[in-house]
Protein backbone atom coordinates (compact mmCIF):
# COMPACT_ATOMS: atom_id res chain seq x y z
CA UNK A 1 0.00 0.00 0.00
CA UNK A 2 1.36 3.38 -0.95
CA UNK A 3 1.11 6.13 1.63
CA UNK A 4 0.91 9.50 -0.08
CA UNK A 5 2.58 12.50 1.41
CA UNK A 6 0.48 14.97 3.40
CA UNK A 7 1.40 17.65 0.86
CA UNK A 8 -0.10 15.66 -1.99
CA UNK A 9 -3.12 14.88 0.12
CA UNK A 10 -3.73 18.49 1.01
CA UNK A 11 -3.34 19.56 -2.64
CA UNK A 12 -5.87 16.96 -3.73
CA UNK A 13 -8.14 17.95 -0.86
CA UNK A 14 -7.99 21.63 -1.89
CA UNK A 15 -8.61 20.73 -5.48
CA UNK A 16 -11.56 18.56 -4.50
CA UNK A 17 -13.02 21.30 -2.30
CA UNK A 18 -12.81 23.83 -5.11
CA UNK A 19 -14.45 21.42 -7.53
CA UNK A 20 -17.21 20.54 -5.10
CA UNK A 21 -17.86 24.20 -4.29
CA UNK A 22 -18.18 24.91 -7.98
CA UNK A 23 -20.48 21.93 -8.39
CA UNK A 24 -22.71 23.19 -5.58
CA UNK A 25 -22.77 26.71 -6.98
CA UNK A 26 -23.91 25.52 -10.37
CA UNK A 27 -27.32 24.32 -9.33
CA UNK A 28 -30.04 24.87 -11.89
CA UNK A 29 -32.60 27.55 -11.11
CA UNK A 30 -35.41 25.08 -10.52
CA UNK A 31 -33.45 23.21 -7.87
CA UNK A 32 -32.42 26.48 -6.24
CA UNK A 33 -36.06 27.51 -6.03
CA UNK A 34 -37.09 24.13 -4.67
CA UNK A 35 -34.37 24.34 -2.02
CA UNK A 36 -35.52 27.80 -1.02
CA UNK A 37 -39.09 26.52 -0.75
CA UNK A 38 -37.94 23.57 1.35
CA UNK A 39 -36.07 25.97 3.66
CA UNK A 40 -39.08 28.23 4.05
CA UNK A 41 -41.27 25.23 4.79
CA UNK A 42 -38.85 24.08 7.48
CA UNK A 43 -38.67 27.55 9.00
CA UNK A 44 -42.44 27.83 8.86
CA UNK A 45 -42.68 24.88 11.20
CA UNK A 46 -43.95 22.44 8.59
CA UNK A 47 -44.61 19.01 9.91
CA UNK A 48 -44.04 15.91 7.89
CA UNK A 49 -47.17 14.69 6.12
CA UNK A 50 -49.56 12.89 8.44
CA UNK A 51 -48.95 9.21 8.55
CA UNK A 52 -51.56 6.80 7.28
CA UNK A 53 -53.75 5.18 9.94
CA UNK A 54 -52.24 2.18 11.65
CA UNK A 55 -54.98 -0.16 10.46
CA UNK A 56 -54.15 0.72 6.88
CA UNK A 57 -50.52 -0.17 7.45
CA UNK A 58 -51.58 -3.36 9.20
CA UNK A 59 -53.77 -4.43 6.30
CA UNK A 60 -51.15 -3.57 3.74
CA UNK A 61 -48.53 -5.36 5.74
CA UNK A 62 -50.64 -8.51 6.03
CA UNK A 63 -51.33 -8.58 2.30
CA UNK A 64 -47.71 -7.83 1.43
CA UNK A 65 -46.42 -10.42 3.88
CA UNK A 66 -48.73 -13.12 2.50
CA UNK A 67 -47.80 -12.30 -1.06
CA UNK A 68 -44.10 -12.09 -0.44
CA UNK A 69 -44.04 -15.22 1.68
CA UNK A 70 -46.02 -17.22 -0.84
CA UNK A 71 -43.88 -16.11 -3.73
CA UNK A 72 -40.71 -16.32 -1.79
CA UNK A 73 -41.32 -19.79 -0.45
CA UNK A 74 -42.31 -21.15 -3.79
CA UNK A 75 -39.61 -19.47 -5.86
CA UNK A 76 -36.64 -19.05 -3.60
CA UNK A 77 -36.84 -21.70 -1.00
CA UNK A 78 -34.35 -21.28 1.84
CA UNK A 79 -32.61 -18.30 0.26
CA UNK A 80 -34.09 -15.73 2.67
CA UNK A 81 -34.71 -16.74 6.29
CA UNK A 82 -38.26 -16.06 7.47
CA UNK A 83 -37.07 -14.15 10.50
CA UNK A 84 -35.12 -11.73 8.34
CA UNK A 85 -38.13 -11.34 6.10
CA UNK A 86 -40.38 -10.34 8.98
CA UNK A 87 -37.72 -7.98 10.30
CA UNK A 88 -37.51 -6.33 6.93
CA UNK A 89 -41.26 -5.99 6.62
CA UNK A 90 -41.47 -4.56 10.10
CA UNK A 91 -38.76 -2.03 9.27
CA UNK A 92 -40.57 -0.95 6.13
CA UNK A 93 -43.94 -0.57 7.80
CA UNK A 94 -42.92 0.83 11.18
CA UNK A 95 -44.55 4.11 12.15
CA UNK A 96 -41.26 5.81 13.05
CA UNK A 97 -38.54 3.98 11.15
CA UNK A 98 -36.16 6.92 11.27
CA UNK A 99 -36.08 7.04 15.03
CA UNK A 100 -35.57 3.30 15.19
CA UNK A 101 -32.76 3.35 12.72
CA UNK A 102 -30.93 6.42 13.93
CA UNK A 103 -27.74 5.77 15.73
CA UNK A 104 -28.27 5.88 19.48
CA UNK A 105 -24.79 7.38 19.85
CA UNK A 106 -26.20 10.56 18.37
CA UNK A 107 -28.61 10.93 21.27
CA UNK A 108 -25.90 10.07 23.76
CA UNK A 109 -23.76 12.79 22.22
CA UNK A 110 -26.61 15.26 22.39
CA UNK A 111 -27.34 14.38 25.99
CA UNK A 112 -23.69 14.73 26.97
CA UNK A 113 -23.44 17.96 25.05
CA UNK A 114 -26.60 19.25 26.71
CA UNK A 115 -25.31 18.34 30.15
CA UNK A 116 -22.04 20.07 29.44
CA UNK A 117 -23.79 23.20 28.17
CA UNK A 118 -26.10 23.21 31.15
CA UNK A 119 -23.11 23.22 33.45
Amino acid sequence: MTIESPVEDSALQRQAKTSLDEHAEHLDLRTQMRLAAVRQRALGGARRPARKPAWLWGGALAVAASLVLALNLSWRQAELPEAALFEDLEMLSAGEPDALLEDPEFYAWLAEDGDAAGG
Binding site: L20, A24, L27, Q32, V38
Partner: peptide
Protein backbone atom coordinates in the same frame (compact mmCIF):
# COMPACT_ATOMS: atom_id res chain seq x y z
CA UNK B 1 -25.62 28.89 3.54
CA UNK B 2 -25.59 25.13 3.81
CA UNK B 3 -28.47 24.03 1.60
CA UNK B 4 -26.64 23.72 -1.72
CA UNK B 5 -23.83 21.65 -0.31
CA UNK B 6 -26.31 19.57 1.65
CA UNK B 7 -28.33 18.97 -1.49
CA UNK B 8 -25.25 17.89 -3.44
Amino acid sequence: GIERRAFR
